[in-house]
Design a protein around this nucleic acid. Structure first.
Lengths: 234, 234
DNA sequence: AAGTGGTCTAGACCACCCC
DNA sequence: GGGTGGTCTAGACCACTTG
């Protein structure tokens, strides 16, 4: 059962995406939302804070809450959504080619990043991820075998995050470090770019709600069909 | 007068930075913090939510609130702090070389990004920003003259954000778009890198609390002394 | 003056973790 | 069972914007 503030979030977000509220429109006031959803002000405010964080609305004291530019086909970096979920929400068609699927002893970097116990083994999975059939990014992921004893290649051809949550795990957040990098010849070929095209490299560590680290991932984005965006707040 | 939750945030953050609470330590519980600061639970929770957002602590249900790895010399991308403030907090010495300081008619991109009225003029300022004397990034900023009629070159040699806030404006957030880019020969020279070193380009639009757009900025990071980090949450 | 969002309080119940 | 954080309520006062 989702908490109330998330259900209200989903409802408002859906109304914004379906243009019931559109660019520049003022959302109902906090008081009106309290009444229409029958909840307290704190709950309404928690929902609205989420919408602000996700860049969907802006709130201005004394004026109101306003819808921002309609969501474009972008990668919202601080909203941790899987590739599948993010693209589906944008009406695009995601797909994945699994290049590597193996279990191995982690090297010391991976072991340290995932804070693994000695002798713990990991999956090593490499995927090319396509948008509408065109390669957009390469993903190299390491996940502890202990957490996902029944992970299959089938799962990795679809949505990793949907699988993880279907197992009852709660994905909490992801610590990301971003840098530019030139592709080697092989990677350029896989992503269908020239070797002189710089890529965006993102190294991330994923954490569950209980503090457990569940993935160490290196992504290379071409940003051909994607833009990498987020909102910084003071 | 700062709100209470920010004052408590500052206090806890300072205690973490000065190692009173260090890596892995458990912070006092919400109940204890309520008593020691004499505030309500909601206020305590707002403070702790901020610490989580800034990546300083992790909270685990049923266990407690724990300090994360001590803050490294990084660029926390979603904590909108000025270059000066961010580096000072990390014990580094920031400095700036102002290469361009002029007032001009904005081109259509700048005018659109800042939602300027017709004929409104902007500052165009280019700076090289150094860490401990070594160039780390190049910044190209456009700011509406109407908002800052008395902006001086002196100001831009120091802290832009400190100046803006000294004028009574409240900086709210910044919409950022990230991509890799190769430097041209001139930029590579200014940043003291080879022309084959890819840079991280960040395009941002800054917004005040009243919804006013106050800057359109393009940054090029070398990431020689810096790493670009943030936390995505689900 | 009326309406808006920003902050804050004092309670309550629940789910989760560990002993 | 006792402690933890997660959610939620019903109030209150304030600062800011707009007419």
């Amino acid at each position: 059962m989702k908490p109330i503030y998330l259900r209200i979030f989903d409802d408002l977000f859906e109304k914004i995406q379906s243009q019931i509220y559109t660019d520049g429109d003022m959302l109902p006031t906090e008081l009106e939302l309290q009444h229409s959803y029958g909840v307290s002000r704190v709950t309404v405010r928690k929902t609205l804070a989420l919408l602000v964080e996700q860049g969907v609305v802006t709130r201005i004291k004394g004026r109101g809450t306003f819808v921002k530019n309609p969501c474009k086909a972008t990668h919202n970096a601080i909203a941790l959504r899987g590739f599948y979920q993010e693209l589906n929400a944008q009406g695009k068609t995601p797909s994945s080619d699994v290049l590597t699927f193996e279990i191995l002893e982690p090297d010391s970097i991976v072991a340290e990043k995932l804070k693994l116990a000695a002798n713990e083994r990991v999956y090593h999975i490499v995927r090319i991820r396509n948008i509408d059939g065109e390669p957009e990014m390469m993903e190299r992921t390491y996940m502890p075998v202990a957490l996902f004893p029944d992970l299959t290649l089938q799962v990795m051809m679809a949505s990793k995050y949907a699988y993880i949550e279907s197992k009852g795990y709660k994905i909490a957040n992801s610590y990301q470090s971003i840098m530019p990098e030139m592709p080697d010849r092989e990677l350029a070929k896989l992503l269908n770019v020239t070797p002189t095209t710089p890529l965006l490299k993102a190294i991330s560590t994923g954490e569950l709600a209980d503090g457990c680290l569940f993935e160490y991932t290196i992504n290379y984005f071409t940003l051909k069909q994607y833009s990498f965006e987020f909102i910084a707040t003071r």
